[in-house]
């Protein structure tokens, strides 16, 4: 019976999915539980900060600049129709600080650092490095996973802030330097519209949440990957897809909570 087989296939996938969610949740809890070493031996975390944070710098800065330039040009086109070019700074800054900074930086982070983390841990598993560590009485969650988790959580808000700052600079270059919007009104309108608590702090909270989501997904996919070459490459792809979806879904939820229009 093809229908019965199809149903059984769907059922198996659902059960497997729920199983993975449970395992993932336990993995997250274990990571938090064994985080002591990441801070007692902060050097481990610093090393991972280099690989997640510093190595993502270039792509984040360049992407931020480009996004800011595009926002400046498109924003000017639209605002000009209503004669409010002076609100360009507000438009660029608010879109970056509230949405584009955290979201785009997290998407780039997922494909740059997240996939690298998955591949690295998957490979460590495939070459039995994780098993070897366990046999040497060293907890791989504490030694390998937790420092990467904290490095990701620390670097994500910093990267998002750099993305936004670069974007504002890009918008300034286009709006003020090239098109010639009045510099004073560009900055003053921006400053009176962007609220530290409501906009910037909420943006930082968003990027923190994204950082947790992306690193947990990346690390879990690596840890759960079948220990073969195909297993690792499949897990790397899944990391990027799932992280991106998680970022956008979380963004909807967080935006609904933070900016309800009151």
């Amino acid at each position: 019976m093809p229908i019965a087989r199809g149903l059984r296939g769907i059922g198996a996938r659902v059960v497997n999915g729920v199983w993975r969610i449970g395992f993932g949740a336990r993995f997250f809890m274990m990571t938090l539980f064994y985080s002591g070493m990441s801070f007692r031996r902060f050097r481990l975390t610093v090393r991972e900060l280099f690989f997640t944070g510093v190595m993502s710098l270039i792509i984040i800065l360049v992407a931020g600049l480009f996004v800011g330039i595009v926002l400046g040009m498109q924003g000017y086109e639209t605002l000009k129709r209503y004669g409010s070019e002076s609100a360009l700074g507000t438009l660029v800054a608010l879109s970056l600080v509230r949405e584009l900074g955290p979201v785009l930086a997290a998407l780039l982070f997922a494909s740059r650092a997240g996939s690298a983390m998955t591949a690295e841990i998957g490979l460590m598993k495939a070459t039995e490095q994780i098993s070897a560590m366990e046999m040497m009485a060293v907890n791989p969650i504490a030694r390998v996973v937790a420092p990467r988790f904290w490095a990701g959580v620390i670097s994500m808000p910093l990267l998002a802030a750099m993305f936004s700052a670069m974007g504002v600079f890009g918008g300034y270059m286009v709006g003020v330097v090239m098109i010639g919007v009045d510099e004073g009104s560009f900055w003053s309108q921006m400053q009176s519209a962007v609220d530290f608590q409501h906009d910037i702090l909420n943006g930082v909270i968003k990027s923190l949440v994204f950082g947790v989501a992306v690193t947990v997904i990346s690390l879990f996919e690596g840890y759960d990957a079948p220990p073969t070459a195909e297993g690792v490459s499949g897990a790397t792809t899944r990391t990027v897809v799932q992280s991106s979806l998680a970022i956008l879904l979380l963004d909807v939820i967080l935006t609904a909570f933070m900016f309800r229009g009151d």
Partner: peptide
């Protein structure tokens, strides 16, 4: 490596400061 990470952290907090004072209204 420490130098690079240090620069990264300083630049990150610098960007936050720029956002807070130049872009935002914390000042």
């Amino acid at each position: 490596l420490d130098l690079w990470v240090g620069m990264f952290v300083v630049a990150g907090f610098g960007a936050l400061m720029v956002l807070a004072f130049k872009v935002g209204n914390l000042s």
